[in-house]
Design a protein around this nucleic acid. Structure first.
Lengths: 130, 130
DNA sequence: CTTCTTTGTTTACATCTGTAAACAAATTAT
DNA sequence: ATAATTTGTTTACAGATGTAAACAAAGAAG
């Protein structure tokens, strides 16, 4: 069973975002993309790609004349991993503690609250009628 | 205005948790605490305390014969900082996106959902009748 | 075919993190 | 007052991270 317990650094997230947006991409496309978005030197991006490949988050295909890269790690899996790590460290693993802290700090715009409320309401309904 | 834009590393969070739990504490108390919880060597803890003091997250008082330490950075401020960083990186800054992802992954126990729902319901009510 | 350009691979290097060992100063016990 | 212990300060050091320069191979252009 392939271990998706991969942790991404900040810089690596940027590279992955590029690949999650669409893949496969050539090295050229990726370096251009990150040169634009992050101002990175070509080498920087290529180095990150190697590291990501080494840790199994990316695969490359050298068949054709241009090497291409694709994500192996899915965004949702990376996100879930980060989320668990974050929640446990900062909010003792409790999402509701997180939300209550944010509201106390008034760090949640009304739109977010409304949207969240709507979502949960729907969830509750589903849960209750099965 | 004191800039609370302090980012804590994992190890530093452990030290801060100890101080947030109660303070001031002597070096002895802190090193014992972290020796027990994390298995850290005395030096490790003391080094972390220095780094934390250097970055303004902790103050020490050397008046008496025993040096004591207290948190300067408040837990809520550290948490908020981390939260913003995390949400923007992983969920484009959207809490509701975070929650919807978690539910899709079935990574939220029913209790959490219920609790969150109750909390938001109350919030909505308050917002609506003012 | 030489030369210029693009692409790919190695090596480099400073800073940050986790983790202490060493050494020095102050207390305490004998 | 001496030795043993506790406490405080400096120095160390490997691995992770951000950031790239150097060098080599492959293709394109003249």
């Amino acid at each position: 069973m392939s271990d998706k317990n991969i942790t991404l650094t900040n810089a690596e997230w940027s590279v992955m975002e590029c690949l999650w947006e669409s893949a496969p991409k050539t090295g050229r496309e990726i370096t251009d993309y990150l040169k634009a978005r992050e101002g990175w030197n070509r080498s920087t991006t290529l180095t990150l790609l190697s590291r990501l490949e080494a840790k199994g988050a990316v695969v490359s295909d050298s068949e054709g004349r241009k090497k291409t890269f694709s994500p192996l790690l899915r965004r949702e899996d990376a996100a879930l991993h980060e989320t668990e790590d974050f929640l446990s460290r900062v909010y003792k693993g409790s999402l509701s503690l997180m939300v209550s802290s944010l509201t106390k700090k008034k760090a949640l715009p009304k739109e977010e609250i409304d949207q969240l409320y709507a979502m949960l309401k729907k969830l509750e309904e589903v849960e209750n009628d099965d």
